[in-house]
Computed example of a mutant assay.
Amino acid sequence: MNLSSLGFFHSLRSNNKNRQFAVIGLGRFGRAVCATMHNSGYEVLAADSDKGRVDQALNDRIVTHARQIDSTQPAALREAGIFEQDTVIVAIGNYVQESIITTMNVKEGGVPHVVAKASSEIHEKLLKKVGADHVVFPEHEMGCTLARSLTKPGILDRFDLDPENSIVEMIAPESFHGKSIAQLQLRSHYGLNLLAFSKDGKFIINPNPNMYITKGTAIVVIGTNRDIDRLPI
């Protein structure tokens, strides 16, 4: 996570009650956001310039309300109720001009939390300049995830704390089999701390150092990316 985003998420958390969401753009990314929020019990207002996408979202019941609008027009956004929402996700990634104008309109309309999808680094910079509070770059993030999974197949999941430090879930290397956590000496040998490991289908958090690692065990460690890369994955 980019540390510059902490203020944004702190603001979201402090305004957690009765939060209202709107999603502009009902492509694959926008639909996924709508469906996840709707399934979590939140009311979601969706908008798209394509009537077919709007009708499909309503038929699939992944939104509470949906409107066909031109989001580059402030009057249309206001009429649709977008400016009344607490958080608006601008999920228009492939049409840069429309994305930027929409983000600017939504922010100028007084929406406190505006999240925008970027399709390139330049797009990301422009979105921030016109007022986006948080920018996501899903294609870039998925590309990084795919590259890591192909080059480091032992790593099951990864959470980047910042560009230099991460928490990773990984399959314990063969060399760890039959050894206790204390015997592995992860901190002295690799500069890593073990947070959890799997046993009998569930994770044990802050495990006893005398517990043993067996073949196929998943472990969760935290440390610098440089030290994580030194593990015999």
Rank of each mutant, 00 (worst) to 15 (best):
V90M: 07
D162I: 13
F197V: 03
L150D: 08
E43R: 05
I122N: 11
I219S: 02
S119G: 14
V115C: 10
L150P: 10
N208K: 11
A196P: 07
H10W: 03
G93Q: 12
L127C: 08
I222S: 07
G41F: 04
G109K: 12
E98P: 01
D157N: 13
Y42I: 01
R226S: 04
L150A: 12
R226F: 03
N225D: 13
A91I: 03
V111N: 12
V54H: 04
Q20V: 01
D50G: 03
N105E: 11
S40Y: 03
P163K: 13
S120W: 14
A76M: 09
I222W: 06
A35L: 06
H177C: 12
K215G: 11
N206L: 14
N193Q: 09
F137C: 15
N193Y: 07
S71N: 04
L58R: 06
L195P: 00
M37I: 03
V88A: 04
V168Q: 04
I155A: 07
G93A: 13
T64A: 04
M104C: 13
I233Q: 05
T72R: 09
R28D: 13
I233T: 00
I171L: 07
L186Q: 06
M211Y: 08
E79M: 10
T214I: 12
N18V: 03
N16Y: 13
K199P: 00
K128S: 07
D229L: 06
H113P: 11
Y95A: 14
I89F: 11
E84N: 12
P138Q: 15
P138F: 15
G93N: 12
H10L: 08
I122C: 03
F159M: 15
R148W: 11
D133Y: 02
G81N: 08
T102P: 11
V135M: 10
Y42D: 01
E124H: 15
V23T: 01
L156W: 02
K51N: 02
Y212W: 05
Q73Y: 07
G154R: 09
N193S: 11
Y190D: 05
G41C: 05
P232W: 09
T64D: 02
F159R: 10
Y190A: 06
S198N: 08
G52M: 12
G81W: 09
V23P: 00
A66S: 03
A75E: 14
P209S: 05
L161Y: 07
G131D: 07
G143Q: 15
I205G: 09
G52D: 12
V130P: 14
G143F: 15
A182V: 00
S40V: 00
